[in-house]
Simulated scan of single mutants.
Amino acid sequence: MQGIKTLNLTNETVAGSQGAVFCEIGSRRYVMANLTKFKAKFKVNITKKGVLGKSGKQAKPGGWEGSWEATVYYNQSTMRALAEEYKNTGVLPPFNIQTINEDQSSVKTIGRQSVIFKDCISEEMIISMLDVDAEILEEDLSGTFNDFDFPEKFKDLPSA
């Protein structure tokens, strides 16, 4: 078929290592340069109900949940300080996480994407770690978020 653009060229993909992550706690903004992986998920809570005259259940969205996971090098105490504050005061300060996907080899074609996850809470973290067999210590963090915004979105690819 002539005239149809080939989609998903390599210059329309994003390299996983090209970008940045920031964490804003209170009035301080931290560069999360020690981060090696980050993933945020949006899950729709589905309610399933039977309906007269239908043999199957019908699905209806009933809210949503946001969760995030990260792997970081074990070289900062920022999140552990939040755990200590919660232990001492009973107040767990929420924070924001901003992720930016920006691959210079594809930015002209698809642009960049920036997402801000709001009111994040870290649910689980390591307080202390040692491993005689590890060349580099890494830790997994996880938590939730209550809101998100897209200050920047990737450009839509042309349709065929």
Rank of each mutant, 00 (worst) to 15 (best):
D131M: 10
N146K: 14
L35A: 14
V51C: 03
A81S: 12
E69Q: 08
Q18M: 11
W68R: 05
V31H: 02
P61V: 02
S67M: 08
V51R: 10
D103R: 02
G143F: 07
N146R: 15
L157C: 04
M79D: 04
Q2T: 06
G63V: 02
Y30H: 13
G143H: 09
L52H: 04
I4L: 14
Y73N: 05
S159H: 04
Q76I: 06
I110W: 10
Q113Y: 05
E123T: 09
K118E: 13
D147R: 09
A59W: 06
F117H: 05
E152C: 08
T36L: 13
T144D: 01
G111N: 03
C23G: 05
Y74I: 02
E138A: 10
L82D: 08
D119R: 09
Q2V: 06
E135C: 04
S105M: 09
A81I: 07
E152K: 13
I4C: 00
D103Y: 01
G62P: 01
L9I: 01
N75M: 08
S17N: 12
K153V: 00
G111T: 05
A83M: 14
L157A: 06
S17A: 12
G62L: 02
T10C: 04
E139Y: 02
T71F: 01
Q18I: 02
N96M: 06
T36P: 03
F154M: 13
F145N: 10
K54V: 04
L141H: 11
M129R: 14
C120S: 07
L130G: 06
K60P: 00
I121W: 14
S55Q: 12
V51I: 11
